[in-house]
């Protein structure tokens, strides 16, 4: 179950690209030769979760917490091509029960963000992303696992309109995420209501959609956002069972993002709350970060 959070707040946030700072889903670019390094701390907690569609709590989990720290540089290759990288360290715990928390380096992600066109405040952006697991963490001890061990590739389109005099903007994106099969330690597992006699597990592909409304000024930014993420298919958490990487994890999340960067040092913060979901925890998550901008 935590992996949901992990998947949605870490993988989705990181793998599909949802962390803050100059991010893979926004329309902000580092100018050529400039780099913004974001150092972030994130925390995500849930008490209720969706066992398939049944919303419940679990007195043997109590509150589930996932935390992470990460370094995320965004680099201006040209004024319209940026590279963004991210590598989080993640750890999990519960407030009740006896499941052993997991911790470790998760997956290295990278994105290439390219401004396809820009005219009269309208702009269109294409983002190609990929991630590789770095740590040898256990992917199927859910909800304690810190990730799913998938290699991923993602493609994203972002449309943005900015009213230049006021800085008001509206932004929409859609992402498709290809996820590799994974290997687990056991050589038989149950999924799709059958037993697979292999250590190879198929993890469904996923997509997300996002809508943002905000104001971006020279020194600050504030934004309200809503996102919907889902797998393309997958099975569900069986009654009173644990989650599994094959599950169709879905979440609708709303939140706020803000950034304050008067000079080359800045701060950002993000909060999110899952309003609806399937096979995931109803998480509240936040992150805070320090931004450091410099020229190469």
């Amino acid at each position: 179950m935590r992996n949901f959070i992990k998947v949605l707040v870490v993988s989705a946030v990181f793998v599909t690209g949802k962390v803050n700072a100059q991010m893979p889903h926004d329309a902000i670019y580092m100018s050529k030769g400039s780099v913004c390094v974001a150092t972030l701390y994130g925390k995500s907690t849930w008490t209720n979760y969706w066992e398939n569609s049944l919303k419940r709590s679990n007195s043997n989990i109590g509150m589930h917490t996932t935390q992470n720290v990460l370094v995320m540089p965004a680099i201006g290759i040209t004024n319209r091509l940026n590279v963004i990288l991210n590598l989080p360290y993640v750890w999990t715990q519960t407030s009740a029960g006896n499941l052993l928390g997991q911790k470790g380096l998760q997956d290295l992600s990278g994105w290439l963000k390219y401004k396809v066109l820009s005219t009269h405040g309208f702009s269109l952006h294409a983002v190609a992303g990929a991630s590789l697991p770095i740590g040898k963490y256990v992917p199927d001890f859910l909800p304690m696992s810190i990730g799913l061990q998938c290699k991923t590739v993602s493609g994203r389109l972002i449309a943005n309109y900015k009213h230049r005099p006021t800085g008001l903007y509206v932004n929409a994106h859609g992402t498709y995420l290809w996820r590799s099969n994974i290997k687990v330690d056991r050589d038989a597992y149950q999924a799709d209501n059958r037993v697979y006699n292999t250590d190879e597990v198929g993890v469904p592909n996923a997509y997300d959609l996002g809508l943002r409304l905000g104001v971006l000024r020279k020194m600050w930014q504030t934004e309200l956002w809503a996102e919907r993420s889902s797998c393309t298919h997958g099975d569900y958490v069986r009654r009173n069972d644990m989650p599994f990487p094959t599950n169709n994890m879905q979440a609708s999340t709303v939140g706020w993002y803000g950034k304050f960067q008067p000079r080359n040092i800045g701060l950002n913060a993000r909060v999110g709350y899952v309003v609806d979901g399937r096979n995931v925890g109803q998480s509240t998550n936040y992150s805070v970060g320090v931004l450091y901008l410099f020229k190469l």
Binding site: I77, G110, L112, L132, S180
Partner: peptide, 26 residues
């Protein structure tokens, strides 16, 4: 920047190549 560009491309290509096969071998 060239190094970063290359590294990112390699990362992306490797991931593309390894992410596509969804067959489960039993």
């Amino acid at each position: 920047t060239n190094w970063i560009k290359t590294a990112s491309l390699v990362l992306w290509v490797v991931a593309v190549l390894t992410s596509c096969d969804k067959t489960i071998d039993e």
